[in-house]
Design a protein around this nucleic acid. Structure first.
Length: 304
DNA sequence: AACACATCCTGACTGC
DNA sequence: TGCAGTCAGGATGTGT
């Protein structure tokens, strides 16, 4: 599913419903969803149940919920098909639910967080928080609060993830220089979460269409000015998609209430195979690429 | 370090 | 209806 805008929509939903809630129980329906918690499901349960959720933080496509004393967090990644649904206990069972976390909110209400994931590429884990590499904030969470002791911490398992284009501390100039040192095609570079995070197949294709760049254009052959334009475009696309609650193509992406996002109505390239390019009317093409697909306009986006 | 690939999985959908 | 084939918003470990 989910790239930055979808994960941010989930983050905001979780923050609203379970900040300051306490974990009262755990039901594991498929332990494979906890495979990234290396010390086993017993340990996961022991560290989670009884903890209070202090905050909900995101960097790129990683989410984490600082717990208890603020030195550990529940780390979630949605992979290709993960959903985090917030339900009341009476709400009918959700299909493909892998893990249920039971909460009591500050107001005393019982809620469940259901981790639904068709393909099981997503995961939940408890991880220790560590200082960020650049000393800045770990990630984004609403309401800046310098009193949050976990402000400048990040889960060890996400500490290699670069800042995303919506991050206040995103260093555009530095990222441009790094891109200029890459000999891969520009799309591969855009998808490299160690260089900049949050962009996946949809928003890569959209950004490249808007910038009129072919996905296989060698990154080191693109001017600094053009790369700056591309990063600005990515920033705008991600922001616009966040404002629409993300992109829902099928039943895979839903917010915490099980609702779809609306950004699919504003896509120019991704999923638009054979439809006319909005600029030049040439049919958009889908080309097999790196075990997935690239959507582009063969006229507006030339390989060289 | 950087790069290209294979791999982890299930279910929905298409066409015969 | 059944069955094979195709497709899917991602990260990671591997060998070079």
């Amino acid at each position: 599913m989910p790239e930055l805008p979808e994960v941010e929509t989930v983050r905001a939903g979780l923050a609203k419903s379970i900040t300051n809630a306490t974990v009262t129980g755990l039901r594991i329906h498929d332990p494979r969803s906890l495979k990234r918690h290396l010390s086993g499901v017993q340990d996961f349960q022991k560290k989670l149940v009884g903890s209070k959720v202090l905050d909900v933080v995101r960097r790129g496509k990683f989410l984490w919920l600082p717990l208890g004393g603020g030195t550990t967090a529940l780390v979630g990644h949605l992979g290709m098909s993960g959903q985090m649904l917030v339900r009341t206990p009476e709400f009918p069972e959700d299909k493909l639910n892998r893990v249920t976390i039971e909460f009591e909110t500050k107001a005393g209400e019982a809620l469940e967080l259901r981790f639904v994931d068709q393909r099981i590429f997503g995961s939940l884990a408890i991880d220790d928080l560590t200082q960020t590499r650049d000393g800045g904030a770990g990630g984004f969470s609403a309401g800046k609060n310098r009193d949050k002791p976990w402000e400048n911490l990040i889960p060890i398992s996400a500490s290699h993830i670069a800042r995303d284009p919506l991050d206040e501390a995103f260093d555009k100039k530095a990222v441009i220089e790094k891109i200029r040192n890459r000999k891969s095609g520009i799309k591969r570079v855009l998808l490299d979460q160690n260089l900049l995070s949050g962009i996946g197949n949809i928003y890569a294709d959209e950004s490249l269409w808007l910038a009129k760049l072919h996905f296989d254009r060698l990154a080191d052959g693109i001017s600094r000015a053009k790369l700056g334009e591309l990063l600005d475009i990515s920033n705008q696309v991600l922001k616009a998609a966040v404002s629409q609650g993300g992109t829902s193509f099928d039943q895979q992406y839903k917010n915490v209430n099980g609702e779809s996002g609306f950004f699919s109505q504003q896509l120019y390239a991704y999923g638009q195979t054979d439809k006319p390019c909005a600029r030049c009317q040439s049919p958009i093409r889908r080309q097999a690429w790196a075990n997935r697909g690239s959507h582009f306009c063969p006229k507006c986006q030339r390989p060289s």
